[in-house]
């Protein structure tokens, strides 16, 4: 390929990219608000999809099971049978005697400037839980029933902003991205956390 041919080829490549780019750009108005429509459609459907989870787990277990030899399958089968039996005995007879239960736990946060506030934490698999401000006093509330334990949590303001203010948390830990999460220890009588106030971003 001589120099002229190479240049012509490069120019065609560039023109293809440019022309397509211009066309997409001229259509950008068509896509205005597309993100809002996508979010509207996925709302209330996200989270742990039990059907998908069961399907995928069965697929995984099945592939593992089929990779075993006959004797291994027998051993695994026996172990599963024993575990299920033990689980049933514990669940049906022992657990009711221990009388452990879920406790009402209330999260409150001051965020007067917020349009929406969600509570995100380990108790819901980090799926946001909507908080409410029924009386419009800027204090958003979520009431959850939680098992005893320690949970990480944070607040999500207006759907996008992670607010890291935990004045009344039982502790603060670092999230995977080095941002802060609050800790709440839920004990015998449940808990009540009142965090805030939230400062609007500049």
């Amino acid at each position: 390929m001589n120099e002229d041919e190479r240049r012509r080829e490069e120019s065609v490549e560039e023109l293809i990219g440019q022309e397509w780019g211009q066309m997409v750009e001229s259509d950008s108005e068509r896509l205005d608000g597309l993100e809002g429509e996508v979010l509207r459609q996925i709302s209330d459907k996200r989270g742990l999809n039990p059907r998908r989870w069961v399907k995928r787990t069965v697929e995984k277990l099945s592939s593992v099971y089929h990779s075993f030899s006959r004797s291994q399958r027998l051993a695994v089968g026996s172990a599963v049978f024993a575990s299920v039996t033990a689980g049933l005995v514990l669940g049906l007879f022992v657990a009711p005697m221990l009388q452990t239960g879920e406790k009402a736990t209330v999260f409150k946060v001051q965020a007067a400037d917020a349009q929406s506030v969600e509570l995100v934490g380990g108790f819901s698999g980090f799926k946001p839980v909507a908080m409410k401000d029924k009386d419009g006093d800027g204090i958003w509330t979520a009431r959850l029933k939680l098992e005893d334990g320690v949970y990480e949590y944070y607040y999500l303001i207006n759907g996008t902003e992670k607010a890291e203010f935990y004045p009344n948390a039982d502790g603060v830990v670092r999230d995977w991205d080095n941002s802060k999460n609050g800790l709440i220890v839920v004990g015998e009588n449940g808990e009540e956390k009142e965090d805030g106030p939230h400062q609007p971003s500049a």
């Binding site: 397509w20 997409v24 750009e25 068509r30 993100e35 809002g36 946001p128 999500l156």
Partner: peptide, 21 residues
């Protein structure tokens, strides 16, 4: 992945033109 819809909205905003193309 954690279920934050706002974060996904931002991804949609960034990639919608490319995906449309």
């Amino acid at each position: 992945l954690r279920g934050e819809k706002g974060a996904w909205g931002e991804i949609v905003k960034r990639y919608k033109d490319a995906v449309y193309g």
